[in-house]
Design a binder for these strands. Structure first.
Length: 239
DNA sequence: GCTCATCGGCAAAACGAATA
DNA sequence: TATTCGTTTTGCCGATGAGC
């Protein structure tokens, strides 16, 4: 049984009116993963229709005080099976295993129990290069205004160049109310930056898309930073 | 001990984005 | 518009481990 909060209900009902994607996972997890966009090909009609139904499905779960399935095996024939070990969700699973010091299960998704995932681009496309990015700013504004999104104490922005923090543009600072603290660079394509809120309660990590060619050290280091932050949050809550 | 399947890592190709 | 640059995707190869 899940008693849904007003913040989440608000996010979902707006998602039905404005026809936007809500996300997948546990809405009350401490961690939010933000990817680029869902990798759905033009000919995958079934998956696309599933994507478009997302907000309506959440409305159903809200009405029943229930939630979607967060724990399942990736069997032969499953869309995630072929690229497992390389695809985004297997990396999300690996990172979450590190954060919670869980044993790696082969071909199994259960990170959704501890994570909510969504996309910064609401236009699915097989290759990020071809994706329609015209809706990015509107979606960033939505994230900024949504209490549901802002409540996550840990946000991983795994969407590299879809969001920017540089000398002139400080999108991450503005949208999430944080400031840059530290950065790690492994190779030109393997890096992440940490940002914290003034009171130290919120951690926002900016990194590349988590899929093939992500170094294990990157996931390990990032996972440990998130773990430490969650420990600290516990301290806040106990005081 | 051998074979096969799977996973991880590397490198090159492909593709946009940025720049001039 | 041409060129360069950076990132993502793809294919290949070797290491590893399970099953026979």
């Amino acid at each position: 049984m899940t008693k849904h909060t007003e913040e989440f209900k608000e996010f979902v009902s707006q998602g039905i009116n404005k026809e936007y994607f809500i996300g997948i996972g546990n809405p009350y997890a401490n961690i939010l993963f933000v990817g680029k966009e869902s990798a759905i090909k033009k000919n995958e009609v079934e998956r696309m229709s599933q994507y478009l139904k997302n907000a309506n499905e959440w409305r159903g779960y809200i009405e029943n005080n229930s939630c979607e399935i967060l724990n399942y095996p990736v069997e032969n024939g499953h869309v995630l099976r072929a690229g497992w070990g390389k695809n985004t969700w297997s990396k999300y699973q690996k990172l979450t295993d590190i954060i919670f010091e869980k044993e790696m299960k082969p071909f199994h998704v259960d990170f959704l129990e501890n994570v909510f995932t969504t996309e910064i681009n609401d236009s699915p496309e097989k290759n990020t290069a071809n994706a329609d990015k015209t809706g990015l700013n509107e979606r960033k504004q939505l994230f900024k205004e949504s209490k549901f999104i802002q409540n996550f104490p840990v946000v991983v922005l795994a969407c590299s160049n879809y969001i920017r923090n540089n000398d002139k543009i400080r999108e991450i600072d503005k949208i999430f109310g944080v400031k840059f603290v530290d950065g790690k660079q492994y190779t030109s394509a393997n890096w992440f930056y940490t940002h914290y809120s003034e009171d130290g309660k919120k951690l926002v990590i900016h990194t590349r898309q988590l899929s093939a060619n992500v170094k294990p050290e990157l996931l390990k280091d990032m996972g440990q930073i998130i773990r430490q932050h969650l420990d600290r949050i516990q301290l806040f809550n106990n005081n």
